[in-house]
């Protein structure tokens, strides 16, 4: 049983016009087995929340705390956070030329587990996870994200989530840019990990579409750097019908 606790998180970013406040006091608790959806309009700070938890150097935390099972996440380096059990599926996965997917996955798995995986079971696990995500086996010998289509990049992110088995996974707009078939494959992958590992999921999205495939236990509406409303999955249905206008109007 794991708990990710975010308390009054405040984050700024340096821009050409000076320091900009993005997160203005975020409170959120994600426990094992729970699925939380964070929904909000563009520019509301959803992705900043994801990258701040992962430790991207672009963002400066100016206040608040983030803990995972009581450990201070903000004091950890990026790789330490991942080894502690956090995972971020990125909206724009980065190309790493000359590094094959299989080499990358094995290096990451070795780092997370603290020892190299047993070769035979590892190859089997990788092949079956790739098969379930409908990825060609030749994929393993391609360079990380190089020349991948949008759908391939997202499948590759979920493949990592399956193999690295995090305690809490943050999925940053994993649904954006996917057609319905790819969305279904990716969602099935997430649900499989949920069923098999009791992972806590923080699903960041702009659209309600993905929530038809991945059922959230909690929905949080994110506007202007903080959560403005919380509810169950019925809140997503309401957003589907009404959009964000109500919240955006209120904050403006």
């Amino acid at each position: 049983m794991s708990t990710l606790e975010i308390r009054n998180l405040q984050v700024t970013v340096e821009t050409e016009t000076g320091t900009k406040e993005i997160l203005r006091g975020v409170d959120l608790t994600v426990k094992s087995g729970e699925t939380h959806a964070i929904m909000g309009p563009n520019g509301s700070g959803k992705s900043t929340l994801a990258y701040s938890i992962a430790g991207h150097p672009k963002y400066t935390v100016t206040g608040g705390t983030v803990t995972l099972d009581g450990e201070d996440v903000l004091a950890m380096k990026v790789d330490e956070r991942a080894r502690a059990g956090l995972f971020l599926a990125m909206q724009y996965p980065v190309e790493v030329p000359g590094v094959t997917v299989s080499n990358f996955l094995r290096t990451a798995k070795t780092a997370i587990d603290g020892e190299a995986p047993k070769l035979r079971t590892w190859v089997k696990d990788m092949k079956s996870a790739m098969g379930e995500l409908r990825m060609d086996p030749a994929f393993a010998e391609r360079n990380v994200n190089e020349g991948f289509s949008g759908g391939e990049k997202k499948r590759h992110e979920i493949l990592q989530m399956e193999l690295l088995r995090p305690k809490v996974a943050i999925l940053d707009e994993t649904d954006s840019g996917l057609d319905v078939d790819a969305l279904r494959v990716v969602s099935e992958g997430v649900n499989r990990v949920k069923d098999n590992t009791d992972v806590g999921v923080l699903l960041i999205t702009h659209y309600t579409r993905i929530l038809r495939y991945i059922k959230p236990d909690f929905v949080h509406v994110f506007v202007d750097g903080k959560i403005v409303e919380e509810g169950g999955s019925e809140l997503a249905d309401r957003l589907e019908a009404e959009g964000y206008d109500r919240y955006v109007g209120a904050s403006a």
Partner: peptide, 8 residues
């Protein structure tokens, strides 16, 4: 960042 975010 991408590689470190995977624990490396």
């Amino acid at each position: 960042f991408y590689l470190q975010a995977r624990g490396i």
